[in-house]
């Protein structure tokens, strides 16, 4: 039992931090533009594929820097040459633009890298069990992911709260016009934030491509849950994104690990529920089965009860 809990916490933490790496950039972009960027998870996927193609030339460590950089360039170009022009036509146009872009990136991946999953391994330096606890091996690569994600949180937080550009970004998240009137180049700030967010998604992709599997479905596997994270965490809140990511990560891994149903729960109180009981199909559904539903349940409840999210600064 104890080893199961330890394993679930560890895996939930890794999954949650992967979500955080994606959502940290997206929550800033969303708060600024007021529009969901559907292509954000596609940039994450592109990061994984960029790393796959770059690793033979640059090695893992080179790719770890170059792939996010490329993803950042893609993000900057998308904002500067695409979104900025669509912006004048309203939020629906922007939404559809990013929606189309997500499919474009996916088809591009199909064309260049094919439809089959690609195998990416952790670098030899990180390909060993770092330590063993409660009978479980903790791979060095997964611990590395945790360190990178937490390092990213600290770095982003310091930049946002301790530097001048960070202050300008914070102010522009909620009051872009006022910031412009004070003489700050808000459009360039937008491009910068978009590029940074995309680079962070790319960084998540480099590690997600190894941790999970590099395949053309990886954007769609994570994309919708990232939206849940930023709504639950609160628009534009980095700390909110971190908390919501870990919460959802743990929620999902624990749910999958628990093979109990309502029938089992009722049995604790001496109520016998058997196949003969009416509604057995419902009583017998296990928590593991509804695990994938939980994030979306949280999304729906959050929007109904607290639309600004856990730590959001702005109503959406």
């Amino acid at each position: 039992m104890f080893d199961l809990i330890v394993l679930s916490v560890f895996n939930g933490l890794i999954y949650g931090l992967l979500l955080f790496m994606l959502s940290s950039g997206l929550t800033l972009i969303f708060s600024m533009m007021g529009v969901l960027n559907f292509a954000h998870a596609s940039v994450y996927m592109a990061g994984a594929y960029f790393a796959y193609s770059l690793t033979p030339y640059l090695g893992f460590w080179g790719a770890l820097i170059a792939a996010p950089f490329l993803a950042g360039l893609v993000g900057a170009a998308v904002e500067r040459f695409g979104l900025r022009h669509v912006h004048g036509h309203g939020h629906v146009a922007e939404l559809l633009f990013t929606f189309g872009l997500a499919y474009l990136i996916e088809e591009f991946v199909h064309l260049v890298w094919g439809r089959n999953p690609l195998d990416q391994r952790p670098p030899p330096l990180l390909d060993f069990p770092l330590f063993t606890f409660a009978g479980i091996d903790f791979p060095a690569f997964k611990v590395f992911m945790i360190v990178v994600a937490l390092g990213m949180f600290v770095a982003l937080w310091l930049i946002l709260t301790r530097t001048r550009i960070g202050l300008i970004v914070q102010a522009a998240l909620t009051h872009p016009h006022t910031v412009g009137n004070l003489g700050h180049d808000v459009p360039t700030v937008f491009t910068l934030v978009f590029a940074t967010g995309s680079a962070l998604a790319g960084l998540a992709g480099v590690m997600g491509g190894i941790h999970l599997v590099t395949n053309p479905g990886m954007a769609q596997a994570l994309g919708p849950i990232v939206f849940v994270v930023i709504v639950v965490g609160g628009l534009g809140s980095l700390a909110g994104a971190l908390i919501a990511s870990i919460l959802i990560g743990l929620l999902q891994t624990f749910a999958i690990a628990v093979d109990a149903s309502l029938a089992d729960f009722l049995r604790l109180f001496g109520l016998q529920v058997t196949r003969a009981t009416p509604g057995w199909e419902v009583w017998s559904i296990t928590l593991a089965q509804i695990g994938p539903m939980l994030p979306y349940l949280l999304l729906v409840l959050m929007l109904m009860l607290r639309p600004r999210g856990l730590l959001g600064s702005r109503d959406s």
């Binding site: 202050l167 102010a171 412009g180 009137n181 808000v186």
Partner: peptide, 22 residues
């Protein structure tokens, strides 16, 4: 607006747009 502001034209809008979180 930011280019105009940089030329030395200041604007204090009616709605007191302070940055509430800062």
């Amino acid at each position: 607006p930011h280019r105009i502001a940089r030329l030395g034209l200041g604007y204090v809008p009616e709605n007191r747009d302070i940055f509430p979180g800062l």
